[in-house]
Design a protein around this nucleic acid. Structure first.
Length: 208
DNA sequence: TCAACGATTTTCT
DNA sequence: GAAAATCGTTGAG
């Protein structure tokens, strides 16, 4: 006799037991203060489909980058070819290349012309684990497949040429689904990681 | 034209 | 815990 939840999943975490909405988050979700969006993105589902391969995971770690007056935000240098994406419409992807070898993905927030975004720093793998393992041969455990901004872009197949400027709301490739919100008790706030400017600002949110 | 550095990850000591 | 790998962006010359 098969279990009642009979559809097969390769998910390997307690998160699979949560009831997750697979509706894409609407544009208005992103058109708010960046801190609110960063906090509210915890528990949501990042999805990337490339060449018929779909990968999903629950967002567990985010950081807010507030705009031209945030010294750690790329937009602190103003509008350049590199930072132009931060000035784009809310709900689009800002993907940048770092340290000569990694990509990082952000969700653009607030309104077009206001350069702010949420860096997605960690994801709990949910679906498409075989593809993630193939793309992350060095990962020792499944929990390590996407628990970092560079790692998750590798595991999800996210890169600048394919995804910079992508529409997270209505796109076909890279999207963020409603998933399930997380209570305040399950979220911790800390300073942002790996930056030298404005290092004490409490703009990082972590599940757990 | 060039040097320094960065929203990182991995490996080595 | 330290250091290497590796390159686009930025700002100074």
């Amino acid at each position: 006799m098969r279990p009642r939840t009979s559809h097969h999943t390769d998910a390997a975490s307690p998160l699979e037991a949560r009831r997750l909405s697979l509706r894409a988050l609407p544009r208005r979700f992103y058109a708010r203060d960046t801190e609110l969006v960063a906090r509210d993105l915890i528990g949501r589902v990042l999805e990337c489909t490339r060449r018929g391969v779909r990968v999903r995971g629950v967002i567990t770690e985010t950081e807010a980058y507030l705009g031209e007056h945030d010294p750690a935000c790329h937009a602190a240098v103003g509008r350049t070819a590199r930072t132009a994406g931060l000035y784009g419409p809310p709900g689009t992807a800002y993907v940048y290349f770092i340290y000569g070898m990694y990509w990082c993905v952000n969700a653009v927030t607030r309104a077009e012309g206001l350069p702010s975004a949420v860096l997605i720093r960690g994801v709990q793998p949910l679906e498409g684990l075989p593809a993630m393992r193939r793309r992350r041969p060095h990962a020792r455990a499944d929990a390590d497949l996407a628990n970092g901004p560079g790692k998750l872009c590798l595991a999800f197949g996210i890169d600048g040429p394919a995804h910079h400027g992508a529409d997270l709301v209505r796109g076909a490739g890279l999207r963020i689904l409603a998933g399930a919100p997380v209570s305040d008790a399950a979220v911790t706030v800390t300073p942002r990681i790996g930056i030298s400017k404005a290092k004490d600002w409490p703009l990082r949110w972590v599940m757990g």
